[in-house]
Design a protein around this nucleic acid. Structure first.
Lengths: 218, 218
DNA sequence: GGGTAATGTTGACAACGTACACATCGCCAC
DNA sequence: GTGGCGATGTGTACGTTGTCAACATTACCC
């Protein structure tokens, strides 16, 4: 055909497809990221995407990685807003707080991107990013807590999963679960509770610190 | 047609469709619960389901409810295995522990059902079940902790979301996330950590109990 | 300048959800 | 009994999706 309006070759198709994917998923989540919708949006035939992505999953994974980068940005913004002029130990805790609150804020502000971000398992064979991702930010804050003495070293192991799970689970409740259409102030307050709880839980490690033995008896 | 082999009318079609949905989703998660696959499995034409369910979502919601019932059963089994001959206050904590560990166990043992269970938002207009669901079991255990004095009443509010989020998030990490193909013993240990952390966090409420002020300073 | 690989298009296929018209059956009124 | 009517199941069809194979166009390098 080639109506001479658009050149036959796009030139920047991979980037254009990902950009279209970001637009679509922002509004409609991972389900809206359709191969045909994305190519339509880019003004290209449906099968053109196969020259740059092996299949739909490939495009989704690459697009999801971008949304995770946006999540990391939100975390960093949240950390900055919380303030940075604290003594090192308190600053380390503050960073963990920012990681958690930023995660929840992202899920609330960008539910479509949040859905996409974790609907795809990240393949470990991907090129490493220059900037730290959400998970690296979490690890760094926990390491800093150990380094400054706030977190006992023997409690560091596995702490990332307790933190990530807590915040991710709550964000999921808010984005897709029973807390879906709660008022924003209510959700914000609950989110603060969750973050404070998990920080306390990770630091305390078990009920030992609060008058209970490990088996649950008092 | 009616080859006289099968009668024209199935008789128990709604139940048969849900049973087929449970079989399919058990192996392939929510994506495998296809209207056509379910009707095929039941030996019935593709559109027969529309006589009993308004659309695919309706069938999925009803099937998902069954998987949530199975989850509640796993929770109760786990509570029973942990032992029931404890003083009331310790027993209340033990029940919370069983709720959390049962949730994680279910996600590990039945990843397909777990995926389906929470892929659909539950509609509040459904008929209430006779047996308590997963959420009721959680609420009951927290209430018992308040009643026996283990949990301060002022910390009861919102505690269910911190607990649910923690455990749900961790289960999601294990079922679909980066912990997807970890060894079972490792995951079990991490799961115990998560549950102990969240219990400690809910009881402690904030870092107050462990030498830190709310703003994070020491 | 001509050949080759990269890139984009067309057409097709199977699977999906779903609407519509039609077939078959249980059951109740007469 | 027997008619008819509502409930239940079937067949066909349409539009959408992911994906493959064959073909068209272009960039680029010898």
């Amino acid at each position: 055909m080639t109506t001479a309006d658009r050149p036959y070759h796009h030139g920047e198709l991979p980037e254009a497809l990902i950009a279209a994917g970001l637009r679509l998923s922002r509004a409609g989540g991972s389900a809206a990221l359709t191969l045909r919708a994305v190519t339509r949006e880019a003004g290209v035939s449906a099968t053109a995407a196969y020259r740059h992505f092996t299949d739909r999953d490939h495009l989704m994974r690459d697009t999801a990685r971008r949304t995770r980068r946006a999540l990391a940005d939100t975390m960093l913004e949240t950390i900055a807003e919380l303030g940075t002029d604290l003594p090192p130990d308190a600053q380390a805790v503050q960073r963990l707080r920012g990681v958690g609150l930023g995660y929840i804020r992202f899920a609330l502000d960008e539910p479509g991107w949040f859905d996409l971000a974790f609907s795809m398992p990240d393949d470990p064979s991907a090129a490493p990013s220059d900037r730290p991702g959400p998970f690296e930010l979490l690890m760094d804050s926990l390491d800093a807590m150990v380094a400054t003495g706030v977190l006992a070293p023997e409690r560091r192991n596995g702490a990332e999963w307790a933190c990530w799970g807590s915040v991710h689970g709550f964000a999921d409740l808010v984005a897709r679960g029973p807390l879906r259409d709660q008022e924003r102030p209510v959700v914000d307050q609950l989110g603060r509770n969750v973050v404070e709880s998990v920080i306390a839980g990770v630091v305390a490690g078990s009920l030992d610190g609060v008058r209970l033995r490990p088996d649950g008896s008092c």
